[in-house]
Design a protein around this nucleic acid. Structure first.
Lengths: 220, 220
DNA sequence: TAATAAATTTAGACTAATCTAAAAATTTTT
DNA sequence: AAAAATTTTTAGATTAGTCTAAATTTATTA
């Protein structure tokens, strides 16, 4: 069965919507994520349902079938492996790789991904700290908390970001924060959720509540 | 101006047809190369002409304009750079990489190709010995002859293949012949154009006329 | 619970890329 | 140069993916 690039992108969108809290993705949510009209979504959802990649109850949203989920997971795997390649081997910055990986992920060759995985040393997390599913679709897990959950005096290692928008990543670069940064919480200011932290045992900086809620740390 | 993957593939086909002897590509030649109907070619050629990528005189074939040629050249550059990556870094065999490179070549990012080029050490020839145009579209040249042009007693280094079909490349692998093989012509048999050669100063083997005509050597 | 607002689907149309079958043009052969 | 063969184009249809506008369904609110 042939699956087009567009169909793949819809599967990925449905995957990312249903991944979180919501068990099914609404037409609107999908159209928003895909930057397209609701009518187009209805058309496409019907096509995907005919191919048994999603289950769709009229006016009740869609969710992925097993095979739909499998395809979406492999797209995530490819995307994240290519991001590792772009950052580690071609020296792109972590905020520059998304669009290119978005293209590369559609190249369907298991052999290619197998070899790329080995070439990169079988990484378990991508440059944003997101887990890379293995060839069977299993995601690695890691004990992680958001920065705002740390108490004063606690230490942590930055292992990921909640949000991976370019402005946010650029801002982190400016602050000197990145994957692998060491953080110690010095003070927490409850009234606006900001915090003063010690970065890499050297600089004291103050970061806003928004940043605190978007950074994943591994406690140390 | 947006150019689709399909349009790009037509440009590449026209490029490869007009590269050789013929100054213009016929509808039939294109349809044969693209494995499609002549009617589709006519349609597509009209589209490409409207975009000023080709020049088309009815019943007299097409040829690329300057901008059409530029796009085709960049496709060749991307294709060949990715082939180097697949063979040198991911350890694919040189006869396994064509289809994957065929996909990778459509990813349009100058930044990506610049970085890949550097990562690979700015190679001038791909794993089949074909020249890789630089970012300005200039092809490297090399003093090369086909094996059948060598006289008895002459030495050469295998630097390329005329034909890059999978069966031919597989056959070369079987013979132990590849890029970089050293060859000395021991005897030439005029009646069927076959030859006995000394391979890598070790093995004497006899190769057919067909192989002799498809191997490019650099004289030594 | 009826009215209003929001979400979703249907209807109908458009573009790009493709096809088959038939017509027209060109080239080759006799 | 006329007939035959080949090549190319036209005509009309098809599929995937998209759109806008209108109709319908569901959810919210007064």
């Amino acid at each position: 069965m042939k699956i087009s690039k567009t169909e793949e992108n819809y599967l990925k969108a449905i995957f990312s919507i249903t991944e979180k809290d919501t068990p099914s993705a609404s037409t609107n949510a999908i159209s928003h994520k895909m930057q397209t009209s609701a009518a187009s979504v209805t058309d496409m959802v019907k096509r995907l349902a005919k191919k048994k990649l999603v289950i769709h109850e009229s006016h009740k949203g869609v969710h992925l079938t097993k095979s739909g989920n499998q395809i979406a997971t492999m797209l995530v795997r490819r995307h994240r492996l290519w991001e590792v390649f772009l950052v580690e081997k071609l020296n792109f910055l972590w905020d520059e790789v998304h669009e290119i990986a978005e293209e590369l992920e559609h190249i369907k060759s298991d052999e290619l991904m197998e070899r790329l995985d080995n070439f990169l040393g079988n990484p378990k997390f991508d440059p944003h700290g997101d887990p890379i599913p293995d060839a069977e679709g299993i995601f690695a897990t890691r004990q992680q908390v958001v920065l705002s959950e740390l108490e004063e005096g606690e230490n942590g290692l930055v292992v990921g970001v909640q949000e991976s928008s370019t402005p946010f990543l650029k801002y982190l670069n400016q602050l000197g924060l990145g994957l692998g940064s060491e953080v110690k919480v010095l003070e927490k200011y409850d009234y606006d959720n900001s915090a003063k932290i010690l970065l890499n045992k050297k600089n004291e900086i103050v970061i806003t509540g928004k940043v605190c809620q978007n950074l994943f740390l591994q406690k140390k």
